[in-house]
Simulated scan of single mutants.
Amino acid sequence: MSQVLTVKNEDIIRHIKFSCQIPDVLRAVAIQKIITDTAEKAGIKVDEPELQQAGDNMRVANKLVKATDTLAWLAKHNLTVEEFEELVYANVLSAKLANHLFAKQIESYFFAHQLDYVAAVTYEVVLDDEDLAFEMYYALQEGEITWSELARQFIHNPELRRTWGYQGIRRRIDFRPELASAIFALVAPQILKPIVTSKGVHLIWVEEIIHPKLDEQLRAKIQQDLFSAWLNQQFEHLEIKMQ
């Protein structure tokens, strides 16, 4: 038979304080108040169909197929049905405010910052010895060794070794400046000459350069980036007092 442990609200607050999470919690509360107040001034409303759709989407995202699944999830997160509806409302309000403030700025921002959204598919091996790195580079050029053989020999992390040092699809801003300038200046596919950084000597195989298209996914990302930057700016000008 399981034992029952009673946790009071003051216990939770004490834990938040002792784990030094108060600044993050205060910021989250302040951000929500900024969103609510700004949306109210802008006359932004959330109607019932929007709430219903957002609630359904949230249940799907959390795999809450049955009513019992939803109730169990609510209990786990100590939420009432009414509080779940408030959570959904806050999410919809935030999205509508972001759209209200920045939907018309997306295209101009994209064209002004287009290079920031260029991406590259890369594989990487980092060595400690520059001479060895150049030796391996020229061996790759001459076909004396393959990239997979190089990765198996010099990558110590098992997961990275299995994928030949695959780094995924990364934007220019995700790379160190000295690497980005070299990677995005070439015509892929190509292996870069070794580049020395504070982390070591990088051998990088650039498989593909992906030029951005302003599709719905990128539009959503740019809008969220602009909205997040705006919220941060609003928060920096606040003086928060706890009662």
Rank of each mutant, 00 (worst) to 15 (best):
M1F: 07
V4L: 12
L5W: 08
L5Y: 12
K8D: 12
N9Y: 07
I13H: 06
H15V: 13
F18W: 03
S19I: 07
C20M: 07
C20N: 12
I22E: 14
P23E: 04
D24N: 11
L26P: 00
L26K: 07
R27W: 03
V29A: 05
Q32E: 13
I34W: 09
T36I: 07
T38L: 11
E40F: 05
K41F: 07
K41M: 10
G43T: 13
I44G: 12
E48C: 01
P49E: 09
L51W: 01
Q53V: 08
Q53N: 06
Q53E: 14
A54M: 01
D56T: 09
A61Q: 08
A61Y: 02
N62M: 09
K63L: 05
L71F: 11
W73H: 15
L74D: 04
L74M: 15
L74V: 06
K76T: 15
H77L: 08
E86I: 07
N91A: 12
A95I: 09
A95L: 12
F102Q: 04
K104G: 04
S108H: 13
F111L: 13
A120W: 08
A120P: 10
T122Q: 04
E124I: 00
V126W: 01
D129Q: 09
F134P: 04
E135Y: 09
E135S: 14
M136T: 01
M136W: 07
L140T: 02
G143T: 11
I145W: 08
H156E: 15
E159D: 08
R162S: 13
R162N: 06
T163H: 05
G165V: 04
G165H: 03
G168C: 02
I173F: 10
I173E: 13
I173D: 11
I173H: 10
R176V: 00
L179H: 06
S181K: 15
A188G: 02
Q190I: 03
I191N: 09
V196T: 14
T197K: 07
K199D: 06
V201S: 03
V201Q: 03
L218E: 05
A220I: 01
K221P: 01
Q224N: 15
D225H: 00
L226M: 13
F227T: 03
W230K: 09
W230H: 10
W230S: 03
L231I: 12
Q233A: 07
E236S: 07
E239I: 13
Q243V: 08
